[in-house]
Design a protein around this nucleic acid. Structure first.
Length: 245
DNA sequence: GCGACAG
DNA sequence: ATCTTGTCGC
C-alpha cells in the first residue's frame, strides 16, 4: 500500500477536483481486487478516530486528529493519541478524505509506534463505500494504512433506505443505484440512526455487528471517545492562545 | 438545468 | 466541522 500513500499525497500537494476524483476511481478498481479479512474472533482492541479543526470555516487552518484504542471487554480506552497538521484543502462533498487524511495518517502512525501489534480494526467518523464512487474516507484511509476499517457516519452522503423501527438494533439497508452500499443502524432506542458501511477489508454484516456491540450511546465508543478527546484538546488549545495577551 | 451533498 | 441556553423526552 506504499504506492497508494504516495499517490494520495501527490494529489493533496497539487490538489485539483479532477485529480482527486481520478484517484478515487483508480482506488476503487484496486479495492475490488482486495479480499476481505475473516475475523476469527471478536477483536480485544478496536480503534476509533476523528478530526476537528481550529477554525473549520477557514482554509488554511489547523487540523487535529485523535485515535482511541478501546478495550472491547470493558468499553474503556487504553490509549489516546492526538496530532496536529496544517491543512490547505477546504471541505468539498465527496472529497472529504483529501482534507482529513494527512492528519489521520500522522496520528495513526504515532499510535502504531506505541503499540506492540498493528491496529486490528479501525472505526472512522465518515463513510466507507457509501459514497458516490464507493470511496469514502474510511475506505481511503484503510487502503493507505492497510488497516481494516469501518465507516460510521451521522448523515447520508448518497443512497436511500426504508424506515427503521424505533428500537436499538433496528437496521435498514442503504441502497444507491440498486446496490447495497451500507446500512442505517439504530444504535439507541428513539435516537436517530447512524450509517454504517464497509471501509476496507471488512464486510457489512461484521461492520454492523461491531458497531452495535460497541455502541452504548448513538456513536460506537471508539469514535465517540475520540471525538470527546478532541473537544477537550481543542478547548485547551484555544484557552492557551487567548491567555497569551 | 436543479438540487443534494460525510466532516 | 463550531458557537450556544434552555428545553423536552426517555
Amino acid at each position: 500500500m506504499k504506492d497508494i500513500k504516495k499517490k494520495t499525497f501527490e494529489v493533496i500537494e497539487n490538489f485539483s477536483y479532477k485529480n482527486a476524483v481520478e484517484l478515487q476511481k483508480n482506488l476503487r478498481k484496486v479495492l475490488l481486487k482486495t479480499e476481505p479479512i475473516k475475523f476469527k474472533s471478536f477483536p480485544q482492541l478496536v480503534a476509533g478516530c476523528d478530526v476537528t479543526f481550529l477554525n473549520p470555516y477557514k482554509t488554511p487552518t489547523t487540523a487535529i486528529a485523535s485515535v482511541v484504542i478501546l478495550n472491547t471487554q470493558t468499553l474503556k480506552s487504553e490509549l489516546i493519541t492526538v496530532e496536529e497538521t496544517e491543512v490547505n484543502i477546504p471541505y468539498i462533498p465527496t472529497l472529504l478524505a483529501f482534507r482529513e487524511l494527512p492528519v489521520l495518517i500522522k496520528v495513526i502512525e504515532k499510535t502504531t509506534e506505541k503499540l506492540s501489534h498493528p491496529i486490528e480494526l479501525l472505526i472512522v467518523d465518515g463513510h466507507g463505500i457509501s459514497h458516490p464512487r464507493r470511496l469514502g474516507i474510511a475506505t481511503h484511509l484503510g487502503m493507505v494504512t492497510g488497516i481494516p476499517t469501518i465507516g460510521c457516519a451521522k448523515k447520508i452522503l448518497c443512497g436511500k433506505h426504508f424506515k427503521l423501527g424505533n428500537k436499538r438494533g433496528s437496521i435498514s439497508m442503504l441502497i444507491h443505484e440498486t446496490e447495497v452500499i451500507g446500512a442505517a443502524v439504530r444504535t439507541r432506542t428513539n435516537t436517530k440512526p447512524i450509517f454504517v458501511s464497509s471501509g476496507f477489508k471488512v464486510k457489512l454484516p461484521f461492520a454492523i455487528k461491531v458497531t452495535l456491540k460497541l455502541a452504548k450511546y448513538r456513536l460506537p465508543e471508539p469514535t465517540r471517545l475520540a471525538h470527546n478527546s478532541l473537544v477537550k484538546y481543542r478547548r485547551r488549545l484555544i484557552n492557551e492562545q487567548s491567555a497569551l495577551f
